[in-house]
Design a protein around this nucleic acid. Structure first.
Lengths: 146, 146
DNA sequence: GTATATGCAAAGCATTTGCATTAAA
DNA sequence: TTTAATGCAAATGCTTTGCATATAC
């Protein structure tokens, strides 16, 4: 990926490399702030502004996907290959990938597009993650965390 | 609707009535600021904070739906009856309802829920509205506005 | 009369931007 | 050497909050 970006004329700085490494190493979908914290462990002098700049560049280049949860900060998803959707916990903010069978059937017919040129679709299922379910109804769960 | 809310113990103030009126009268999905502008025409002394408070109350009460577009401010959709999705213009911010055939098939099987308790799903198709398409490629359009 | 909503202004949070400095190519 | 990226701090945009005043019930 770094090679691909360099070929596109991207200047490869220590900061950018670190941001890319952090994203690639994570299966979860980090916030800009979380990327910043992890990046600081590898490169203490990196700034939050640079993290934001870099994330936006990666998004513009199609290397990273931005996910809006509706509340709280944006998340960054390094998995741009396979088309997929997300499960979001409205309580703790946990966010994970999900691939609903039949989601590929969710297309708009020309009439349904109302003249729009549709470029993509964002699908977020919202609810409670296993941990927060347990916390909300401890008597129903075997393990009550939080 | 106002009656319903009063029955639930909602104090009916001029401000709340005006916010509800503004929302009901609009087919488009307004931002808090747009609600504020329209409300001011009916009640000049209303404050933006009250508009926000009222909108949040209506959302909590299930009378209004909040839509996150990913960029820009939140939108408020007074149509909570029929389940539907949205078309969003990434250029001008236009937002309209859409009801894709087959969208009701978009459910997660128990295995796909990964232990989440799914409470709802937000689906936003993003692209360019007719006007912005025309503006982006004037040579392809009969009518180039903007 | 009492509890609750209001307006105002200030605070909050996530994100972007201007600009002098630094580093990649 | 040249051009672009960085860090910092300030600015931005949206939304929430604290508190004294006003108002619905």
């Amino acid at each position: 990926m770094l090679q691909r970006l360099r070929d596109r004329g991207w200047r490869l700085t220590a900061q950018r490399r670190v941001v890319a490494e952090v994203l690639a190493g994570e299966h979860v979908h980090l916030t800009a702030d979380a990327v910043y914290s992890r990046a600081q462990l590898l490169l203490p002098e990196i700034s939050l502004a640079t993290v934001y700049n870099t994330l936006n560049e990666l998004v513009d280049m199609g290397e990273v996907r931005e996910i809006a949860t509706g509340d709280g900060p944006r998340r960054y998803d390094p998995n741009t290959g396979a088309m997929h959707h997300h499960l979001y916990c409205i309580d703790c903010g946990a966010l994970r990938d999900v691939n609903p069978t039949g989601a590929d059937r969710l297309l708009l017919s020309p009439a349904e597009q109302h003249g729009f040129q549709v470029l993509g679709v964002d699908i977020v299922f919202r609810g409670l993650c296993p941990d927060c379910r347990a916390a909300a109804a401890p008597h129903l769960a075997a393990t009550a965390s939080r």
